[in-house]
Nucleic acid binder design. Structure first.
Lengths: 342, 342
DNA sequence: CTGTTAGCGCCTTCAT
DNA sequence: ATGAAGGCGCTAACAG
């Protein structure tokens, strides 16, 4: 199969004029006789001509393409971020090369190489849960390709980042549980590799401390976000001699799983045990009971990150500032902590 | 900002040998002295060299990139299809250029031009709800760029497609409602522009006919998939003189909205009115009551579509066969039609 | 085994 | 206002 895309040469031949003139006409160069221009444009349209961005990119050393690397596409979070990012990119005439790495470090590295080989003008990155080595991203920095992290950021790189205040949000979530009268609050934490896990854990601990509650290691379970394991952990927690009466989960899918398991155990939510999630996923308002959670401005994260990235690209490498934008979160109180009279 | 990506010339200079030798070493050509190759490879690694795919694409007239155009990223359906498609593409060394058009025809056309300009080797397409003109896709066909439709296919183009048997699935769904004793079954249909809407509607009608139920136009509401409108339609249906006791919704988000509204009206599900959706979205098993729906093999749709596309690309244009792959669906019975004793 | 040359499609000087 | 020539980074064909 050979694709016969129309080229400038085809148009030039068709009109018996030089390629340069065609090129000028197509790019809107002023020094082209109006009738020539119109003739060229007409033929171009007729022949379905599309500029070959490859050759242009080769010349300009710019592809007008931004790479976006995210860890997964299972939950609605990352697709929504991408939508926001794409929106801003499109406004500025940029395309987007998306890849999700299934939470695999190997794949993340491989995908980053693909981005490099395809000469993206910049990258938007959220790390996989396995990523502990950042050399592949440092390479971008070294090559002068701007990089902006969001959500799952790399703390040891001084580049722009878009985050929410995970510490504060977790603090609010746990404080809310305390204020509803819960005394023993467990935390299903994320993997230690992710900064967001650590920050949310800190928020959890500090909220307990503020109210003079002990930080009980038995009630803190770090896990690798493999949802199927939630069942085991919840069961374990419920069978403790002194089981928790509240759970703060690292994210909504975890919380939703937890709710399922708790219900199967015949316990009442929130009376026996209350649950709070993080991120306000699509499903969270529908489950029974509806999930109290922290909402993040998902699309806005995408928009902000892309905005920062495009700003960066206008500037000299030396002027890149590692700005950190922190977006607002909000505690959404639903039935999994406070039963509405409804 | 200038990105200083290493080139073959840099390596050649560094080693004082010719570019062609470097190129050969890098591409694994056999006729290179092993020590030369190793030297090249070592320097390449050291200098973070990545082959510039742009120039290679320019020469080979292949970009090793597949475009994927989907109508939206709000529901989990399309992101999941993309995951499946990407999986197969990656296996064969292809990248993926994704764009979602927010259900806008204009954006779909614009995005298709971007794909053309970026010389994708093929495209995977699911149409926006507004698309009624297919010229932009016919252009691909004419230029010899293979195209495979999935889910929301273009019926008037003879190209490969991946679908489920929407007619049969809708039939099963409605038959199920009938078998649970429902007598007046309404259908919240999709826009007429989409073939899937029409097929599901046909399945609905034929199921009614099979059981000698009248097809009542008052109970069929076609809408444009704007979720916020569901409230109005459901309210309208419930206030009919002779309201329905069952609803078959075009998709799960619609069904979930419907359930919310019905509950707010104080009606019992499924006793007063039963609801069936379509697609088995992530949220559907969590809502209260859980949603009876048709499950589609989402990732498999993506895998199959990408598989077909890659097959196409190995063949001469003349040999392209408009294969239509129909994947299996399954009726998932949950509490919105049959209350479990639980 | 290695070096030289031409050219992919386009844009950008330079020349006319 | 137009044409001709050079080059972006790389590979392939053609010499040595």
């Amino acid at each position: 199969m050979k694709s016969h895309q129309t080229t400038i040469i085809d148009i030039a031949k068709h009109l018996s004029i030089s390629k340069s003139t065609v090129s000028r006409a197509l790019t809107g160069h002023p020094s082209v006789k109006p009738e020539t221009r119109e003739a060229v444009l007409a033929v171009a349209q007729e022949m379905d001509y599309q500029r070959n961005m490859l050759s242009i990119s080769l010349i300009t050393n710019k592809t007008k393409t931004i790479g976006i690397i995210v860890p997964e596409f299972m939950t609605s979070f990352f697709p929504q971020v991408v939508v926001g990012a794409q929106e801003i990119a499109a406004q500025k005439g940029y395309n987007v090369l998306i890849s999700q790495c299934n939470e695999s470090y190997e794949t993340e590295v491989a995908n980053s190489r693909v981005m490099l080989a395809n000469r993206v003008d910049g990258v938007l990155v959220s790390l996989s849960k396995e990523t502990r080595n950042f050399d592949h991203w440092k390479t971008f920095h070294r090559k002068g390709i701007p990089i902006v992290f969001f959500n799952r950021v790399c703390e040891e790189m001084a580049v722009p980042k878009v985050v929410v205040d995970d510490y504060d949000a977790a603090f609010k979530a746990v404080e809310h549980l305390i204020q509803t009268g819960k005394k023993r609050i467990a935390h299903l934490a994320g993997p230690d590799s992710l900064a967001i896990s650590r920050k949310r854990l800190n928020g959890y601990e500090d909220a307990l401390r503020k109210y003079n509650f002990p930080v009980d290691e038995d009630l803190i379970i770090s896990y690798d976000l493999t949802l199927s394991k939630v069942r085991i952990y919840i069961r374990h927690l419920l069978e403790l001699e002194n089981p928790p009466d509240g759970i703060f989960a690292i994210n909504d899918p975890t919380a939703i799983e937890a709710i399922q398991v708790i219900k199967q155990h015949g316990l009442r939510i929130p009376e026996d045990i209350a649950v709070v999630g993080f991120s306000n996923n699509y499903a969270s308002s529908f489950i029974e009971p509806s999930l109290t959670t922290i909402s993040q401005p998902v699309k806005e994260i995408g928009r902000t990150a892309m905005g920062l990235l495009l700003d960066l690209m206008d500037k000299e490498t030396a002027l890149w500032k590692p700005i950190i934008k922190t977006l607002e979160t909000e505690l959404i109180v639903r039935n999994s902590t406070v039963k509405k009279i409804s």
